[in-house]
Design a protein around this nucleic acid. Structure first.
Length: 884
RNA sequence: GCGGUCGUGGCGGAAUGGUAGACGCGCUAGCUUGAGGUGCUAGUUGGGUAACACCAGUGGAGGUUCGAAUCCUCUCGACCGCACCA
C-alpha cells in the first residue's frame, strides 16, 4: 500500500491570497470586456442594477452570483456575452441623507457607488465594467431628456390636471402603484388627495399591446405574467345609456351611462348606482346637504378607514329613476353608492344582485328585490333561488324575455346587438367598449435628485420643449435641504431662462422624473453607452436586445417590468429601437432570509453578536460577548430594522467570495427564499477546501496529463468516465434552466465519485494508464463545472492541474453521449405496483427475455404466489410491473 | 372576497406518471488529528427483525391508472398578489 502523507500537512486553500490575484489576471486579459463588433452569437445577461444605498447586501450577492454563473457559462459555450453593471442612482434616500447629514446628494451617491463597486469587484463577477454608468450622470440623463422630448413630440406625453396622491412626509406625488393601503410606499405616511398639473406618460396607449404580448413571453414566470395581466385589467363590456326620469325641482341629466361586463344580466337589474364623485352626484349634492355629507364621508373612508368597515355597502337614494332600455315602463332607482369607483368605467353601474356579490349585499341593506337571470346547469329554473351568495357561474338565461334559454355568451351578444341598434336622443343606447384598469403613468416628482423634465414655461408661448442641442438640462449643484419641498422651486437663478421660441422670460419646469423612468431603458443604454449623440444606436441595440436573461426580485414584477415594456414600445415609435419587448427571459429570485434574535429587553441583536449552542431541541443562543441569553425568533427577510443582516464583506473576509457564491447557489431552489445560516456557510467552505485537497491528491498520484488511453478502459475507469460525463451533461442542462441547486448536487456527486476512484488508485501499487486518464479527465471536468460558480478556486485548481491558460477562457467541455448510455441496465421490478426486486439485463433485451427473466426471480414468484399472472407491463429502460 | 403558489425525513431540498427521500446540513458510532471547530469510514423516514423478509409512509379524504409525491375532486394549512375593477 502506497503511503501518502501529503494530505495532512498540505497548506489549505487561501481565498484571501488567491481571489485578488485571479481578479487581476482576468482584468489584465480583458476577458469580460465585450466588443460590439464581436461576430459570435450574442448573449445578454443582466441583473437588475442596484440602488447605491451604501453597501451591498446578501440579496445582491445572490442576484449577481446567479447572473454571473450564466454569463461565465455562456462565455465558455462560445457566446459574445454582454454582462454590464450600473447604478440606479437617483432617488429620495440621497435627499434624506442630505437633510440628515448635510452631505450633498451627488457626493453621497458617488461615494456609495465607489464603495459598492469595490464590494462587487471583490465578488469576482465577470462584468464589463467599461460600460458602467450611473443614471445620475448627465451623460445618461441627457439622453433620457431627449427621449422625453421625442415622446412629447409623438403625443406620448400628456400634461393634465389630475387628482394625485400626495405624500405629506416626502412632499411628493406618488403613482397609484406606489400607494399601498392608502400609504406612501416609502414613507408609510397617509396619502392625501390633491389637484396638481402633472406630466404623464401615456402608457394606456399601449394597454392592449402590453396585455396581449404577455402571451408570447414564454420565458417569463407565469406568476409575473398573471400579475401584469391583472394590473392591466382588460375587460370587454358594454356602455349602456339609461334615460333618466327627473323629479319636480331637481335638475337631472337626460340620461346616465353605465359600463358593464355583464349585459346579459340586464333583466336582473334592480338599481343604478353612481360614484360619489360622479358629475350627477356632484350636481345633486350642490342642492342637497345630506347627499354632500354622504359623499364627503365616502371620500374620507376611501383613503383612511376602509379597513374598519370595508364590508358595509352604503348608498344614498337620489329619488331619481332610470328607465330600463328594454322596457319603458320599468323604472330603476338611482343611488349614490360608496362602492362605485369614479376611476373605473364611467363611474356608474347597474346593479344585478343575483349575480354580483357586492350588488347583493347592497340590495339586502336597502330592501330591494333579487331576480335570478342565469340558472346553473342541472338546476330547475322554477326553484332556483339566491340566498346569501350571488351566482357568477355559467348557465342559461331565465326570467329574461327574449334572452331566455340562451347561454351567457349568446345573451351578451344579443343585448349588445339590440342596444347598438336602438337609439336614445340620436345616439345609440349601447356601445361595445374594451376597458382597462391601467392608468397613465404620472412621472412628475417635486424632488431635486432626479432627472429634470426638459421643458420651459413661457407666459407668451406656454409649454416649450428645451431644444435638443441645449440638452442636458443639468441639475444645479448649489442647493440646500434645510426645508422640505423641492429646492429647485426656490433656486434663485436656475429656474429663470429665456423662452427658446420668443426669447421672453421663461421658467424652467422644476419637476423631475420618477426614478422608474431611469430604470426603464438603462438596459438599452448598456448596448452602446459611449454614444454621445443619441440614447441608442438601433443597429447595435437590435443585435444585443432583447436581454436574453434578466434576473431580479419579484418585487419588481409589475412596476419596473411594465414600465420597461412600455418604454421599448415608445422608443420604437420614436425610432430608437426596433423591438417591443425588452426581456426575452425573466427570472425572479427568492430573498435571503435569516433567523432573528432578541435580547431580554426585546431589542434586536445582530447575528454577528450571537453564538449558537447545541442543536435540535437543545439549540439555544447566547450573546457572543456577554453570554446573556438570546431568544431565537422567526426567520425573516434580512432587514436593517430587525438587524438580522449579514454583511457580505464579513463573509468574504472570513471565507472568501467563492464560499459566499457557492452557498447562495446550494440547496434552495433559486426562485425560493434561501435561509442564510452559519452552518451552511461552513459547509460550503468545507467543500472549497475539499476540492482543493482532491486536486492536490490527484496531481500527486497522476503527476501529468495522460493522453490516448480512452480506448483501453477497464471497468473502474469506465465507471469514472461515465460519472464525469453524466455530471457534465447534467450540469449543462441545469444551468440552462437556472436550476443551480441541482448543479451543486451533481458537482458533489462527481466529486464523490472522483474521490472514491482516487482512494482506490492510491491503494494500488501503480495507477494504470486508463485510470490515470480517467482521473485526470474527471478532475479537469470537475474544475470546469465549478468554474462558473466558484471562479477563483477553479482557476487555482486549474493551475495546479498544470494548465497554462485560464479556465475562464477555456471552452466548455463536450459531453461524450456514448458514455451516457449503459449497455446493461437495472430495471426495478414491481408486482402489482409494489417494488419487489430488480433485474440487470442488456439494454436492448427484448420483451420476451425481460419477461422470462422477471418471472424467474424468487422475489417475484414469492410475491405472485399461486395467483395467475394476468399481464406484464414492460416500460423500456424504466420499469417492469407484473400484474397478478 | 377573488386569483395564484406551495405542503415530502430533525432541516434545506431531489424525484413532474415508473425504485420516494438524490445532494447537502445536522445527528450517531468508530478511527484520525489536535487545545479545538479538521479529516476519513459507516449509519441516519417510521414500525419490525439477530439480520433478512415484511408492513406503513409525500398535510387529510376520495378517485383515475398496471403503477400517483406527480393527474382529477373535495378538504385542511402556509405563503404571495389583487381588491368594492361593475
Amino acid at each position: 500500500m502506497k503511503k501518502t502523507t501529503g494530505t495532512m500537512t498540505r497548506e489549505r486553500y487561501n481565498p484571501k491570497d488567491a481571489e485578488p490575484r485571479w481578479q487581476a489576471a482576468w482584468n489584465d486579459h480583458k476577458l469580460f470586456a465585450t466588443k460590439n463588433d464581436d461576430p459570435r452569437p450574442s448573449y445578454y445577461v443582466l441583473e437588475m442594477f442596484p440602488y447605491p444605498s451604501g453597501r451591498i447586501h446578501m440579496g445582491h450577492v445572490r442576484n449577481y452570483t446567479m447572473g454571473d454563473v450564466v454569463a461565465r457559462y455562456k462565455r465558455a459555450k462560445g457566446f459574445s456575452v454582454l454582462h454590464p453593471m450600473g447604478w440606479d442612482a437617483f432617488g429620495m434616500p440621497a435627499e434624506n441623507a442630505a437633510m440628515q447629514n448635510k452631505v450633498h446628494p451627488k457626493e453621497w451617491t458617488y461615494a456609495n457607488i465607489a464603495t459598492m463597486r469595490k464590494q462587487l469587484k471583490s465578488m469576482g463577477l465577470s462584468l464589463d465594467w467599461a460600460r458602467e454608468f450611473a443614471t445620475c450622470d448627465p451623460t445618461y440623463y441627457k439622453h433620457q431628456q431627449r427621449l422625453f422630448l421625442d415622446f412629447l413630440a409623438s403625443g406620448l406625453v400628456d400634461r393634465k390636471t389630475a387628482k394625485v396622491n400626495w405624500d405629506p412626509v416626502d412632499m411628493t406625488v406618488l403613482a397609484n402603484e406606489q400607494v399601498i393601503d392608502g400609504r406612501g410606499w416609502r414613507s408609510g405616511a397617509l396619502v392625501e388627495q390633491r389637484e396638481l398639473t402633472q406630466w404623464f406618460l401615456k402608457i394606456t396607449d399601449y394597454a392592449e399591446s402590453l396585455n396581449s404580448a404577455l402571451d408570447h413571453l414564454d420565458r417569463w414566470p407565469e406568476k409575473v405574467r398573471l400579475m401584469q395581466r391583472n394590473w392591466i385589467g382588460r375587460s370587454e363590456g358594454l356602455l349602456v345609456r339609461f334615460a333618466v326620469r327627473g323629479q319636480p325641482g331637481v335638475a337631472a341629466p337626460a340620461d346616465i351611462q353605465v359600463y358593464t361586463t355583464r349585459p346579459d344580466t340586464l333583466f336582473g337589474a334592480q338599481f343604478i348606482a353612481v360614484a360619489p364623485d360622479h358629475p350627477l352626484a356632484q350636481a345633486l349634492a350642490a342642492d342637497n346637504a345630506e347627499l354632500a355629507a354622504f359623499a364627503a364621508e365616502c371620500r374620507r373612508a376611501g383613503t383612511a378607514q376602509e379597513v374598519i368597515d370595508k364590508a358595509e355597502k352604503k348608498g344614498f337614494d337620489t329619488g331619481l329613476k332610470a328607465v330600463h332600455p328594454f322596457d319603458p315602463a320599468w323604472e330603476l332607482p338611482i343611488y349614490v353608492a360608496n362602492f362605485v369607483l369614479m376611476d373605473y368605467g364611467t363611474g356608474a353601474i347597474f346593479g344585478c344582485p343575483a349575480h354580483d356579490q357586492r350588488d347583493l349585499d347592497f340590495v339586502r341593506a336597502h330592501g330591494l328585490g333579487v331576480t335570478p337571470v342565469v340558472c346553473p346547469p342541472d338546476v330547475d329554473p322554477a326553484t332556483f333561488k339566491i340566498d346569501d351568495t350571488a351566482y357568477d357561474g355559467d348557465g342559461r338565461l331565465i326570467n329574461s324575455r327574449f334572452l331566455d334559454g340562451m347561454s351567457i355568451g349568446a345573451a351578451k351578444e344579443e343585448v349588445a346587438r339590440r342596444l347598438e341598434a336602438a337609439s336614445l336622443g340620436n345616439r345609440p343606447v349601447g356601445e361595445r367598449k374594451v376597458n382597462f384598469r391601467l392608468r397613465d403613468w404620472g412621472i412628475s416628482r417635486q424632488r431635486y435628485w432626479g432627472c429634470p423634465i426638459p421643458v420651459i414655461h413661457c407666459e407668451a408661448c406656454g409649454v416649450v420643449p428645451v431644444p435638443a442641442e441645449q440638452l442636458p438640462v443639468t441639475l444645479p449643484e448649489d442647493v440646500a435641504f434645510d426645508v422640505p419641498g423641492n429646492p429647485l422651486d426656490r433656486h434663485p437663478t436656475w429656474t429663470h431662462v429665456a423662452c427658446p421660441t420668443c426669447g421672453g422670460p421663461g421658467r424652467r419646469e422644476t419637476d423631475t422624473m420618477d426614478t422608474f423612468v431611469d430604470s426603464s431603458w438603462y438596459f438599452v443604454r448598456f448596448t452602446d453607452p459611449w454614444d454621445a449623440a443619441a440614447p441608442s444606436n438601433p443597429a447595435i441595440a437590435g443585435r444585443r436586445m432583447p436581454v436574453d436573461q434578466y434576473i431580479g426580485g419579484i418585487e419588481h414584477a409589475i412596476l419596473h417590468l411594465l414600465y420597461s415594456r412600455f418604454f421599448m414600445r415608445a422608443m420604437r415609435a420614436t425610432g430608437h429601437v426596433g423591438l417591443d419587448e425588452p426581456f426575452a427571459g425573466l427570472f425572479t429570485q427568492g430573498m435571503v432570509v435569516h433567523e432573528t434574535y432578541r435580547d431580554a429587553d426585546g431589542g434586536w441583536v445582530q447575528p454577528a453578536d450571537v453564538r449558537i449552542e447545541g442543536s435540535g431541541e437543545g439549540r439555544r443562543a447566547v450573546h457572543a460577548e456577554t453570554g446573556a441569553p438570546i431568544e431565537i425568533g422567526s426567520i425573516e427577510k434580512m432587514s436593517k430594522s430587525k438587524r438580522n443582516t449579514v454583511d457580505p464583506d464579513d463573509i468574504i473576509a472570513a471565507y472568501g467570495a467563492d464560499t459566499a457564491r457557492w452557498f447562495m447557489l446550494s440547496d434552495s431552489p433559486p426562485e425560493r427564499d434561501v435561509i442564510w445560516s452559519e452552518e451552511g456557510v461552513q459547509g460550503a467552505y468545507r467543500f472549497v477546501q475539499r476540492l482543493w485537497r482532491l486536486v492536490n491528491d490527484l496531481v500527486e498520484v497522476v503527476a501529468a496529463p495522460q493522453a490516448g488511453a480512452e480506448s483501453t478502459l477497464g471497468p473502474e475507469s469506465l465507471l469514472l468516465r461515465k460519472a464525469t460525463h453524466r455530471a457534465l451533461a447534467g450540469v449543462e442542462d441545469d444551468i440552462e434552466r437556472l436550476r443551480f441547486n441541482r448543479c451543486v448536487a451533481q458537482i458533489y456527486e462527481l466529486a464523490n465519485a472522483l474521490q472514491a476512484a482516487l482512494t482506490g488508485a492510491r491503494e494500488a501499487d501503480a495507477v494504470p494508464a486508463d485510470m490515470g486518464f480517467a482521473l485526470r479527465e474527471a478532475a479537469d471536468v470537475l474544475v470546469q463545472l465549478v468554474a462558473p460558480m466558484m471562479p477563483h478556486l477553479a482557476e487555482t485548481c486549474w493551475e495546479q492541474l498544470g494548465h497554462e491558460d485560464l479556465v475562464a477562457e477555456t471552452p466548455w467541455p463536450e459531453a461524450d453521449r456514448s458514455l451516457l448510455v449503459e449497455d446493461e441496465i437495472t430495471l426495478p421490478v414491481q408486482v402489482n405496483g409494489k417494488r419487489r426486486a430488480d433485474i440487470t439485463i442488456a439494454r436492448d433485451a427484448d420483451r420476451a427475455a425481460i419477461e422470462a427473466a422477471v418471472l424467474s426471480l424468487d422475489a417475484v414468484r414469492r410475491a405472485v404466489g399461486d395467483a395467475p399472472v394476468k399481464k406484464i407491463i414492460v416500460v423500456p429502460q424504466r420499469i417492469v410491473n407484473v400484474v397478478a
